[in-house]
Simulated assay, not measured.
Amino acid sequence: MKFFKPFFIFSSLLILIVSCGKDEDQEAPDPFTFSETQLLQMHNGDQKVWHITEFYEDYEEGIKSDLEACLLDETYTFLSTEREVLVEHGQTSCYWTDPEVQFGGAVYTYYPESGDLFLDFSIAEGKGTSTSATLWILRLIELTPNRMVFANGVPENRQRAVVFEVN
């Protein structure tokens, strides 16, 4: 009996130490990083057409942007080769009732070593001698074959966000 008690205590301590050591050494994978294989969902290895279905001022609080309505009729084609996005602007304008020109668009940058993907997303219009343009840099935080979400802010407090979906 004397042998079992010290052996039991020693074994329990050893298991506890080994278990704790593994938890501290292993970091949880970042859920907001993506592999090249996962990115195929974005462009199908060639190109894929997406539409904006939601545009948020504050994603965490569910507050939509005033600009959402002017983006819902646009088409975004994500290309695999140039890492660019072709934009077909819709009829609804963002800044003027009848702009002479709508421009702006999107370009994405992928960092394979970290798995981060960022979207430079802009809205711009011109009328006469006036132009208005806004640019956001957003990080990919969700990717499925039919839905992508790009947002800025920290994971606990996402702010501006754009949601793309396939029709």
Rank of each mutant, 00 (worst) to 15 (best):
K22H: 10
K48C: 09
T92D: 08
V154H: 06
K64I: 07
T33H: 03
V101Y: 10
A133Q: 15
V163T: 08
E156Y: 04
S93L: 04
N167G: 12
K48L: 13
V163I: 13
T97C: 04
T75M: 07
A161Y: 00
A106D: 09
S12E: 03
C70Q: 01
M1S: 13
A106F: 10
N167I: 10
S19A: 14
D58M: 03
L40A: 03
G115W: 02
S114D: 03
V162F: 01
V162A: 02
D120A: 15
R160Q: 14
N44D: 14
Y95H: 07
E88W: 04
T97I: 10
S11I: 01
F3W: 12
V87E: 06
V149Y: 00
Y59M: 03
T109C: 07
D46Q: 06
G45S: 01
K48S: 12
F10N: 00
T97P: 02
N157L: 11
W136L: 15
I137N: 15
S19M: 05
L67M: 14
L39N: 08
E57W: 09
S93Q: 04
H43D: 05
E142M: 03
C94W: 02
E82V: 13
I52H: 02
T81G: 14
I141S: 00
F32D: 09
I123D: 02
F10L: 12
N146Q: 13
I52V: 14
S12K: 03
C20G: 12
Y59D: 00
E54D: 11
R158I: 04
L117R: 04
S19T: 06
E113D: 12
L13E: 01
Q91M: 15
T109K: 15
